[in-house]
């Protein structure tokens, strides 16, 4: 199908090119409007980021005296080096680097965990005839109505009783069950033609092999899309890590910002530059992940490769 479609494309576009001469002008106007709207959007969204970044390159005295800056301050290297390497916190052992590492562990662990669990759940629901499969799916699905904030006390209780406070597993494992992910994968698996599994059965592939050899490669773009969403969600977790970890060694970047600000309130002049630098650092990895994987991301959500 795909081939036939692209085969037909060139003549269609050349037809358009021929008739294009007249409606060309209004079209380019529309283009222009599109770009103006997009430019405004970019300005609104990126403006504060740019200001935050520029301000972070000034020293804290200037910021305290003159407010946010829109010029290059020249303290870039110094500030960022401080944020990354200077030991801070109550125990004086936490560096920005360590917090970045914690954030990465949380973000990646969260995303990978969710993908593994929801893929397996969807696999079971779609391909295996077990009693109450549909019911199980809807029960999983209704958990969407119970976000973390609603069940945070019992969740804390459970994690505490399991002795998982102040550990990476305590940060990650209780969060990796995902109704959204299960739903996405279920829909995707359902769109894979039944003949695929039948062909695989004739080719002698058992359930595990079918999963590894056929389903996982077919879900590649889907996995990438969900990884991005979940990584960003995991990276931006604030409430959960705050409750689960009290040792500073487990602090994430997002918590670090708040922590530095809090500490600085006691000092004479808050070190705004470092807080802003940390905010910029905290935004960077999710932004990078999205920029690098955006093509796969869109493909995974829009296109179904079959």
């Amino acid at each position: 199908m795909a081939i036939a479609d692209t085969d037909r494309l060139p003549p269609a576009t050349s037809d358009k090119a021929k008739t294009k001469t007249k409606p060309q002008k209004p079209r380019s106007n529309i283009r222009l409007y599109d770009h103006i709207v997009l430019a405004i959007g970019v300005f609104i969204m990126m403006g504060p980021l740019v200001v935050a970044f520029l301000t972070s390159t000034h020293d804290y005295v200037t910021i305290h005296r003159e407010g946010m800056q829109i010029t290059w301050g020249g303290n870039f290297l110094e500030t960022y080096k401080n944020v990354l390497y200077q030991k801070g916190g109550f125990t004086g052992e936490v560096t920005g680097l360590l917090m970045t590492q914690n954030s990465l562990i949380l973000g990646i662990g969260f995303a990978v965990g969710k993908i593994v669990v929801s893929m397996l759940a969807a696999y079971a629901i779609v391909y295996f005839r077990f009693p109450f499969a549909t019911l199980s799916f809807w029960i999983i699905f209704t958990t969407l109505l119970l976000p973390l904030e609603v069940r945070i006390l019992p969740s804390y209780e459970v994690v505490q009783q399991l002795g998982m406070l102040n550990s990476y597993s305590g940060l990650i494992i209780p969060l990796i069950a995902s109704a959204t992910g299960t739903f996405f994968f279920r829909q995707f698996f359902k769109s894979i033609p039944n003949e695929m599994i039948e062909a695989a059965r004739i080719d002698g592939a058992g359930p595990v092999q079918f999963f590894w050899d056929i389903l996982v490669p077919l879900s590649k773009t889907m996995i990438a899309a969900i990884f991005i969403i979940m990584f960003v969600v995991g990276w931006n977790q604030y409430l959960w890590p705050t409750l689960m970890t009290t040792e500073e060694g487990y602090f994430t970047l997002v918590r670090g910002i708040r922590n530095i600000m809090q500490q600085m309130i006691g000092a004479d002049i808050p070190e705004y530059n470092e807080a802003l630098a940390m905010a910029v650092l905290a935004m960077l990895p999710p932004a990078l992940v999205i920029m690098i994987f955006q093509r796969m991301f869109i493909k995974g959500l829009v296109e179904q490769e079959k």
Binding site: P193, E195, M196, A199, E305, K306
Partner: peptide
């Protein structure tokens, strides 16, 4: 010891 050819071919698209 059978081999089957399906209506929609059911080839593995990623291989």
């Amino acid at each position: 010891n059978i081999a089957m050819v399906f209506q929609n071919y059911a080839l593995y698209p990623h291989m």
